[in-house]
Design a protein around this nucleic acid. Structure first.
Lengths: 120, 120
DNA sequence: CGCTTGACCTAAAGCGGCTTGAGGTCGGTA
DNA sequence: TACCGACCTCAAGCCGCTTTAGGTCAAGCG
C-alpha cells in the first residue's frame, strides 16, 4: 500500500501521514529499495485509529504515548485500555459541548425568526 | 464587568478574550479612563456565543465575518441566520465523527478484554 | 529518444489559534 | 513604604498541520 492509498482510506492528507510518522506516531513503516513507504494493512488500520482519535481531540502527546505502548506489544494492553477509556471521557465532554451549542443555536435561530416576523 | 468576570463566565481565558478583541471578534468594548476594559452584559453574552461556536469548531475567519454582520445591526439577520445554520451542519459532522469514534473504541476495548481473558 | 507529467521523497518555512513571558501602571493593604 | 494582585501591551513561543522549494524516478507520448 502506498501513502496515497492510506490517505484515501484514512482521510488524512499525505503530508499529515508523513508528519505523523516523523513524530513517532506510526513507527517502523517499511520502505522499498527506492525509499518509498510501503504500508501494511496493520499500518493502515493503526493510522485509521489515530485519525479517529485525533479528529475527536486527543492531543498528539497522548497519541505518541499510546503508540509507544502499542509498539511494546501485548504486555501493555492494560495501559492502552486505560488510555482509550480516558478518551471515551473526552468524547463525553465533546458531546456535552455539542449539545450545549445546539441548544444555543436553536434559541438564537428562533429569536432571529421572531425578529424577521416583526419587521419583514 | 471586568475581563476576569467574563473569563469566569465564558470559560475563555483572559488572554483569549484579549486576543479575540484584538482579532476583531468583539469590537467596541468600552474602556474606563484607566484604560481597563469594561464589558457590558451584551459583550459577555456575545463572547459566550463565540466561545461555544469556537469550541465546536467554527474557524476564526467565520467568527470574524459573523461579528462584522452583528456589528452592522438588524439588517444582517438573514445572513447571520445562514451562518448559524451552516454551523449546525458542522455540528452534525462532528456528531458523526464522535459516533464513529465511539464505535471504534468500543470494538477496540472489547478486543482488549478478550486478549486479557486468553492470557491473564 | 527526449520531454513532460505525476507520484513519491526531504527539509524548512508558514499559518491558525492560542499561551506565555517580559515589562509597566495602578489601587489596596500589612 | 513596599509589596501584592489585577489590569495593560507587545512579542515570542507552541501545537498541529499545510505549503513551498527542490530533487528522484517511472510511465506515457510526440
Amino acid at each position: 500500500m502506498k501513502i496515497s492509498d492510506v490517505a484515501a482510506r484514512t482521510g488524512l492528507s499525505v503530508s499529515t501521514i508523513r508528519y505523523y510518522e516523523a513524530s513517532g506516531l506510526c513507527p517502523h513503516v517499511a520502505r522499498g529499495a527506492d525509499g518509498v513507504r510501503r504500508f501494511s494493512k496493520t499500518d493502515a488500520d493503526w493510522l485509521e485509529l489515530l485519525a479517529s482519535l485525533r479528529a475527536t481531540g486527543m492531543p498528539m502527546a497522548q497519541m505518541r504515548a499510546f503508540a509507544a505502548l502499542y509498539a511494546q506489544g501485548d504486555a501493555t494492553v492494560g495501559a492502552r485500555k486505560a488510555a482509550l477509556m480516558t478518551h471515551q471521557r473526552r468524547l463525553d465532554d465533546r458531546q456535552a459541548e455539542l449539545d450545549r451549542c445546539r441548544g444555543l443555536l436553536a434559541r438564537k435561530l428562533r429569536r432571529y425568526d421572531a425578529m424577521a416576523q416583526v419587521q419583514p
